[in-house]
Amino acid sequence: EDYYQILGVPRNASQKEIKKAYYQLAKKYHPDTNKDDPKAKEKFSQLAEAYEVLSDEVKRKQYDA
């Protein structure tokens, strides 16, 4: 799945936009606030993985290549 789609940001998003999108979605899908939703944990880990790659310039360049 596309990391940009997961975070809901365009491919040319700035680091600030990526961070903002991640924090909004992380708050929304955090397992502690969605105890009754088994998919929230999965969504949250996808968000974390996408953010880890896109927030790191080197990893992001490799991902975009």
Rank of each mutant, 00 (worst) to 15 (best):
E1W: 10
E1Y: 13
E1N: 13
D2K: 04
D2Y: 05
D2T: 09
Y3D: 00
Y3E: 00
Y3A: 03
Y3K: 03
Y4D: 00
Y4I: 00
Y4T: 00
Q5Y: 13
Q5E: 09
I6N: 03
I6G: 01
I6T: 07
L7V: 03
L7A: 00
L7I: 05
G8Q: 10
G8W: 04
V9A: 02
V9M: 04
V9P: 00
P10Q: 11
P10Y: 07
P10A: 12
P10E: 12
R11A: 05
R11E: 04
R11W: 08
R11T: 05
R11S: 05
N12A: 08
N12W: 10
A13Q: 01
A13P: 01
A13E: 01
A13T: 04
S14H: 07
S14G: 06
S14R: 07
S14W: 03
Q15L: 15
Q15D: 10
Q15A: 13
K16W: 12
K16Q: 15
K16G: 15
K16V: 13
E17P: 01
E17T: 11
E17L: 09
E17V: 08
E17Y: 07
E17C: 10
E17S: 08
E17G: 05
I18Q: 00
I18A: 00
I18E: 00
I18Y: 01
I18N: 00
K19R: 15
K19G: 08
K19C: 10
K20Q: 15
K20R: 15
K20E: 15
K20G: 08
A21I: 04
A21G: 03
A21E: 03
A21Y: 03
A21Q: 06
Y22H: 03
Y22I: 01
Y23D: 11
Y23W: 11
Y23T: 13
Q24V: 12
Q24F: 15
Q24R: 15
Q24G: 08
Q24I: 15
L25P: 00
L25W: 05
A26R: 15
A26V: 13
A26Y: 15
A26E: 07
K27N: 11
K27Y: 10
K27G: 09
K27Q: 13
K27M: 13
K27E: 14
K28R: 12
K28L: 14
K28S: 08
K28Q: 13
K28F: 09
K28H: 08
K28G: 06
Y29D: 03
Y29G: 03
Y29T: 04
Y29A: 05
Y29M: 08
H30M: 08
H30Q: 09
P31W: 06
P31A: 12
P31C: 09
D32Q: 09
D32T: 11
D32G: 11
D32M: 07
D32F: 03
T33R: 12
T33M: 13
T33W: 09
T33Q: 13
N34W: 14
N34Q: 08
N34H: 13
N34A: 10
K35A: 14
D36T: 11
D36A: 11
D36S: 10
D36R: 07
D36W: 11
D36Y: 10
D36M: 09
D37Q: 05
D37K: 05
P38Y: 07
P38R: 06
P38K: 07
K39T: 13
A40D: 05
A40G: 06
A40Q: 07
K41S: 13
K41Q: 14
K41E: 10
K41M: 15
K41N: 09
E42R: 11
E42T: 11
E42C: 11
E42V: 11
E42P: 04
E42H: 11
K43P: 03
K43R: 12
K43F: 13
K43H: 09
K43L: 11
F44P: 02
F44G: 04
F44I: 06
F44C: 05
F44H: 05
F44D: 03
F44R: 07
S45F: 13
S45G: 09
Q46T: 10
Q46I: 11
Q46S: 07
L47I: 14
L47C: 06
L47F: 06
L47H: 02
L47E: 02
A48S: 12
A48E: 10
A48R: 12
E49A: 14
E49F: 07
A50W: 01
A50L: 03
E52W: 08
E52S: 15
E52Q: 10
E52F: 08
V53G: 02
V53M: 04
V53K: 03
V53Q: 03
V53F: 04
L54V: 03
L54T: 01
L54G: 00
S55K: 09
S55P: 00
S55F: 06
S55C: 05
D56Q: 02
D56E: 03
D56M: 02
D56S: 04
D56L: 02
D56A: 02
D56C: 04
E57F: 07
E57P: 15
E57N: 06
E57I: 10
E57Q: 06
V58M: 11
V58A: 15
V58S: 10
V58D: 14
V58K: 08
V58N: 14
K59R: 13
K59A: 08
K59H: 04
K59V: 03
K59I: 03
R60C: 02
R60H: 02
R60P: 01
K61P: 03
Q62E: 15
Q62T: 06
Q62S: 08
Q62L: 11
Y63E: 03
Y63D: 02
Y63W: 03
Y63L: 03
D64Y: 02
D64T: 02
D64R: 01
D64S: 02
A65K: 12
A65M: 13
A65R: 07
A65L: 12
A65Q: 12
